[in-house]
Write a protein that binds this DNA or RNA. Structure first.
Ligand SMILES: [Mn+2]
Ligand SMILES: [Mn+2]
Ligand SMILES: [Zn+2]
Ligand SMILES: [Zn+2]
Lengths: 141, 141
DNA sequence: TTTTTAATTTGTAGTCATTCCAATTTAAAA
DNA sequence: TTTTAAATTGGAATGACTACAAATTAAAAA
């Protein structure tokens, strides 16, 4: 299903308006695999919306997360990265350049220790890999 | 091996001094399974060191991490939690009360998709579970 | 199309964890 | 005991994110 259309419908169903700023953010995330930050989105918007406010960007991101169109990553302690792919997958971040890539695999449920479930109702799980990407390895030589 | 002794030796080998403040922090972490924050450590120290500075706490924590006596958790976006258990294990955080518990298991290497290793040298991996702990589930009723 | 109104955007100020810095103090080597 | 490099301290700075109130606007109603 189309990300922009789905997200637009979710906003409308929630009684939220479709503003040019919102639509521009939807477009930036459509098919985006780069896991941008609020700053990234803000910078990209300033070209078309020179008066865009950071608050607006944060507001839009928050609504998109609440409506299930974006997921917040926990991999980078410095800032939140947003992912329009809300399906179950994980991430790897290069500790040298900060690039974040997808790691498409499922942690098999039987592997999770059952004593965890005895103490805890698990809602979701983030698996974060840290290391060095190819281009940074070559640069380091 | 004893945590305080090991950590003390690491500081000395690195040419760092053993101050009362440092020793007090080492003691607070010895056998500690609660994953405290800098604030937690600061508060615990104010009893014996009423003039302790936050900067000192942060400096000590940084040195301990650098020398391998502490590990920084990525599970809580709001603040860093520190763990004196640097062996490979994972964590679960209650999204209601913030409590963090250990999840003792190893992600089996063959389960990690091999294309990750083609693009990336993995140094370490944090697995973070989020959910609701027992006592918060009961309170919620 | 015009009017109406509640929602949105914007700029600014505020928060909070963490870091920076320079003056003072101190562990520990000489 | 003296010396000195390192540590501690308090206060100021940083940076991501949030709160708030005034101005603007999407879109429903007339
Ligand atoms: Mn992703
Ligand atoms: Mn632990
Ligand atoms: Zn890299
Ligand atoms: Zn709880």
């Amino acid at each position: 299903m189309d990300f922009i259309k789905t997200t637009t419908e979710r906003f409308q169903s929630a009684g939220l308006k479709i503003t040019p700023q919102r639509l521009a953010v939807f477009k930036l995330f459509d098919g985006n695999k780069t896991h941008p930050t609020a700053e990234d989105i803000f910078s990209a918007l300033t070209r078309d919306y020179p008066h865009i406010s950071f608050t607006t960007v944060y507001n839009i991101l928050k609504s998109m997360v609440q409506l299930g169109s974006l997921r917040e990553l926990t991999i980078d302690r410095e800032r939140i990265h947003y992912d329009p792919d809300t399906s179950s997958h994980h991430h790897a971040m290069c500790t040298s350049c900060g690039k974040i890539i997808d790691v498409m695999f499922q942690l098999p449920l039987p592997k999770i220790p059952k004593d965890l479930f005895e103490q805890f109702t698990v809602d979701f799980c983030h698996i974060n890999f840290y290391g060095t990407c190819r281009s940074c390895q070559q640069k380091g030589k």
